[in-house]
């Protein structure tokens, strides 16, 4: 209540503008004010590599690594029958269209290792494998953590996903 009238007005206008201007990218469904998002428009990103994420927050987390040079596809959630979310409510048919019509080399599934995440990954893998190579990000230990302090569940998963050296 102590804030000046003007400040509140600006803030609420900003919220309204965000609501009216921000939409979804027509290709990857990331948040954007334009028809296509910055990543899809960027000619330096390789369009042959698609990383599939559950929502835009996950995309932003991956972007912060500055390691990934491909493009994305935002599903808008994970398959969870208990929450009434089936595949048709997610941006899956558009992903299949993309993969089947464009020249894609690889699809990386970057979904959380929960039941819902794994179900969605397995479902997508089955549908996409006929067109393209499908991979999944590794489960493992956070960098900087000591092995002896890692919980057993993480350790067991990390062991399962071990790679050649």
């Amino acid at each position: 209540m102590r804030q000046p009238q003007e400040k509140i007005k600006n803030f609420s206008n900003a919220l309204l503008n965000a609501k009216s201007q921000v939409g979804q990218c027509s290709t990857c469904f990331h948040l954007t004010a334009n028809d296509e998002c910055e990543i899809c428009c960027n000619s330096n990103r390789s369009k042959e590599l698609i990383c599939v994420v559950a929502d835009s927050r996950d995309l932003l987390a991956l972007e912060r690594t500055r390691e990934y040079k491909g493009v994305y596809h935002v599903l808008g959630g994970l398959i969870s029958p208990m929450d009434g979310v089936g595949p048709e409510l997610l941006n899956i048919s558009s992903l299949i269209k993309r993969v089947s019509e464009e020249a894609i080399d690889e699809v990386i599934l970057a979904l959380t290792p929960s039941i819902e995440g794994d179900t969605t990954s397995l479902y997508l893998a089955k549908l996409l494998k006929v067109f393209v190579k499908v991979t999944r990000i590794a489960y493992g230990l956070p960098v900087g953590s000591e092995l002896e302090y890692a919980d057993e569940i993480t350790l067991a998963r990390a062991l399962e996903g071990r790679t050649d050296i």
């Binding site: 398959i79 595949p87 048709e88 039941i115 179900t119 397995l122 479902y123 089955k126 549908l127």
Partner: peptide, 15 residues
């Protein structure tokens, strides 16, 4: 979408 149901069940079966 019977086909999608079967694929979804496959995903559950595997896990």
């Amino acid at each position: 979408e019977v086909e999608s149901m079967d694929t979804l069940l496959d995903a559950f079966d595997t896990q």
